[in-house]
Simulated scan of single mutants.
Amino acid sequence: MKYWIMKSEPDVFGIEHLKSRPRKTEAWDGVRNYQARNMLRDEMKKGDQVFFYHSNCVEPGIVGIMEVVKEGYVDHTAFDPRQKYFDPKSNPAKPRWYMVDVRYKRKLKRTITLAEIKTEKTLKNMKLVQRGNRLSIMPVSKAEWHHILKMETQPT
C-alpha cells in the first residue's frame, strides 16, 4: 500500500462534496499534468490511502482521508468539448489523461495546515513543502503519513 496527497480547491470540489456523493465515491478527474497523470495511471492502486488537501483557500491544509477504490483509467472528460477539462489533443484511440476513483473515509479532527506542516522537522522532506513543487498529486511516505496523523490529536 502507498500513501498520497491529492489537492483540490474547496469551493470547486472539497471534502464535503466527496462526502455527499453516492457511496461517498467520486472519479478524480481533470488532472492535466503529465507527472501527476503518470502517478494516477501507473502507481496508484486500489486500497492506497490518500490525504485530501484543500488548496488555494484562506487556510490550505489536510482536511480528510480518502481511499483509492478504482485504479487508473482513461479520463473521458478530455474528449468532450462541453467538459471543463476538454483537451482537443486527447482522443479515445490515444488517450492522454487518466483518473482514479476515490472514496471518502473521514474528516480529520482538525485541519493540519500547510503552515504547521512546514514547521515540522520530521516533514522537511515531504514533497508538499519542497520549493517549486505545485503538483496536485504527490506521494507521501509511510513515516510522513503517520506523523501527520499524530499531529491531528495535538493542540495547535
Score class of each variant (00 low, 15 high):
Met1Trp: 09
Met6Glu: 03
Lys7Cys: 08
Pro10Val: 06
Pro10Gln: 06
Asp11Ile: 12
Asp11Tyr: 11
Phe13His: 08
Phe13Asn: 07
Ile15Met: 07
Ile15Thr: 06
Glu16Leu: 11
His17Pro: 00
Pro22Gly: 03
Lys24Thr: 03
Lys24His: 06
Thr25His: 00
Glu26Pro: 01
Ala27Asp: 15
Trp28Arg: 00
Asp29His: 13
Arg32Pro: 07
Arg32Asn: 08
Asn33Cys: 12
Ala36Ile: 09
Arg37Tyr: 11
Asn38Gly: 07
Leu40Pro: 01
Leu40Glu: 03
Arg41Tyr: 04
Lys45Arg: 14
Gly47Pro: 02
Val50Trp: 05
Phe51Tyr: 09
Phe52Thr: 01
Phe52Glu: 00
Tyr53Cys: 05
Ser55Pro: 08
Ser55Ile: 01
Asn56Ile: 04
Asn56Arg: 14
Cys57Ala: 02
Cys57Met: 04
Cys57Gln: 04
Glu59Ile: 10
Pro60Ser: 05
Ile62Arg: 04
Val63Gln: 08
Gly64Trp: 02
Ile65Phe: 05
Ile65Gln: 04
Val68Glu: 04
Val68Asp: 05
Lys70Glu: 09
Glu71Ile: 03
Glu71Met: 07
Gly72Arg: 07
Gly72Cys: 08
Gly72Ser: 09
His76Asn: 08
Ala78Val: 05
Ala78His: 04
Ala78Cys: 02
Phe79Lys: 03
Asp80Val: 12
Pro81Ile: 07
Gln83Phe: 03
Gln83Pro: 01
Gln83Val: 00
Lys84Ile: 06
Tyr85Gly: 05
Tyr85Cys: 02
Phe86Glu: 04
Asp87Ser: 07
Pro88Leu: 02
Lys89Leu: 09
Ser90Phe: 10
Asn91Phe: 05
Pro92Arg: 09
Ala93Phe: 11
Ala93Gln: 12
Lys94Glu: 15
Tyr98Thr: 05
Asp101Trp: 02
Asp101Leu: 01
Tyr104Arg: 06
Tyr104Val: 10
Lys105Cys: 13
Lys105Gly: 05
Lys107Trp: 01
Lys107Phe: 04
Arg110Asn: 07
Arg110Thr: 10
Thr113Arg: 08
Thr113Tyr: 01
Leu114Val: 11
Ile117Tyr: 11
Lys118Leu: 15
Lys118Met: 15
Thr119Gln: 15
Thr119Ala: 14
Thr119Phe: 12
Glu120Pro: 10
Lys121Ile: 15
Lys121Pro: 14
Leu123Arg: 03
Asn125Ser: 15
Lys127Cys: 03
Lys127Val: 04
Leu128Asn: 06
Gln130Leu: 11
Gln130Glu: 14
Gly132Trp: 14
Asn133Leu: 08
Arg134Ala: 10
Arg134Val: 10
Arg134Gln: 11
Ile137Tyr: 00
Met138Ile: 12
Val140Phe: 01
Ser141Tyr: 00
Ser141Asp: 03
Lys142Tyr: 08
Ala143Ser: 12
Glu144Arg: 02
His146Asp: 15
His146Phe: 15
His146Cys: 05
His147Arg: 15
Lys150Glu: 15
Lys150Trp: 06
Met151Cys: 12
Met151Thr: 13
Glu152Val: 05
Gln154Ser: 15
Pro155Trp: 12
Pro155Glu: 14
